[in-house]
Nucleic acid binder design. Structure first.
Lengths: 205, 205
DNA sequence: CAACAAACATACATAAATGTATGTAAATGA
DNA sequence: TCATTTACATACATTTATGTATGTTTGTTG
């Protein structure tokens, strides 16, 4: 039996998990730094420090890997932190949402969104992952959002608007050379919060 | 001398102009339908119905062609229509701006933005064209916008916000399978206009 | 109406990505 | 412990894009 697990003896599940994680991480990095067009299997393997054989063993092809990378980013950056307490205000939600969308990793999501639209084959394989992603902004899917927005049509409409605004800002970051903040980012966020406060106040009245 | 210009005799300037136009048009189409990653010289030539030799004669390389495509879209969709009368209201500006950003051609711009960020070589060549594009949203560069916004910091901030919102919506369209409208597009536009009216009213007071 | 240059086509060499096939080391389980 | 499966590496064939070089047609100009 495997009585004494030698110092560097890892279980197969461990090896698989770690390898998949490394590959997914390398994929996201490549998407952020080099974009979809230059995110090839060789590039990902180079970053992960493994051979293409390893990649091919764990993922059927690039679409498969991208779907995994997307789901992973989705889980780590958007779902996991969302399992905390409810939002105190629209302002708090804006802070929370923007803290996520401003992450460099969100550029990877944008790249995949476009790639899925651009390449039908890829789109078919990625649709499930993408649809899960969309739920991040879905009011119905989140008890926190439902509680925050309530039944006011005005608040709900403002929420939709704020989502698009944040995505616009995120695209700005994604297209800025270093992924740095775009010029008027702070002003826009501040304005969004101000408007949020007013909408909330009026809805309460 | 070229006494009687035969029916199908075209001047060299004509031929060049038409060829460049065809290539640029094919490039934009390809960017919209297939994205940057699959917009190759062969694909562009296939669409334009010419050989790669022709392309290479008019454009040094793909970055050069992309810069031309970008400038052309810029000119046709954003600058040219902007030379009309001043905006009557923020609402009118929203209508005008959205009428442009909702065009499929704007997806080509987004693709180029990302490509320029993703590939340094391309970025260097495209920077001038991109910087010109940014002027579309620049208040200082447009007398119409200056007149519309005036000196109110609130109106100016709202304008910045609205720009990001519209870009967010445009990205939504760009990532939607048929380039079709995203779910809550109409609501967001309507809300933006409502807010615009309020901001204007308050700034006047 | 030459001589020349511009406009466009054809052909080939090179590079890079992908898929597949096969080989080896490590882990599992009877 | 040994047969078997899983994890990963190596090698090759194919495809596709690019750059470049050279050829042919069509306009321009003295």
């Amino acid at each position: 039996m495997t009585a004494k697990p030698a110092r560097n003896r890892r279980t197969q599940a461990d090896r698989s998990g770690e390898m998949r994680a490394r590959l997914v991480e390398a994929t996201v990095e490549s998407l952020v730094e080099r974009g979809y067009a230059r995110t090839t299997t060789v590039e990902v393997c180079r970053r992960a420090g493994v051979t293409r054989g390893a990649l091919h063993h764990h993922f059927a092809d690039l679409p498969d890997l991208l779907a995994a990378a997307m789901s992973d980013t989705y889980e780590r950056f958007f779902l996991a932190p969302a399992r905390t307490r409810p939002f105190a205000s629209l302002e708090a939600w804006i802070d929370d949402a923007w803290a996520r969308l401003r992450q460099p990793a969100f550029k990877a999501v944008i790249e995949v969104w476009l790639a899925a639209r651009n390449e039908p084959v890829l789109g078919r394989e990625l649709r499930p992952a993408i649809d899960r992603y969309k739920l991040v902004f879905s009011i119905e899917a989140s008890a926190r959002l439902k509680a925050l927005i309530g039944s006011s049509a005005e608040v709900q409409a403002f929420y939709r608007l704020a989502c698009e605004t944040l995505i616009g800002l995120a695209l700005g970051r994604a297209t800025t050379p270093g992924g740095r903040a775009v010029d008027h980012e702070a002003v826009v966020i501040a304005t969004l919060k101000t408007l949020g406060r007013r909408i909330t106040r009026e809805a309460a009245a």
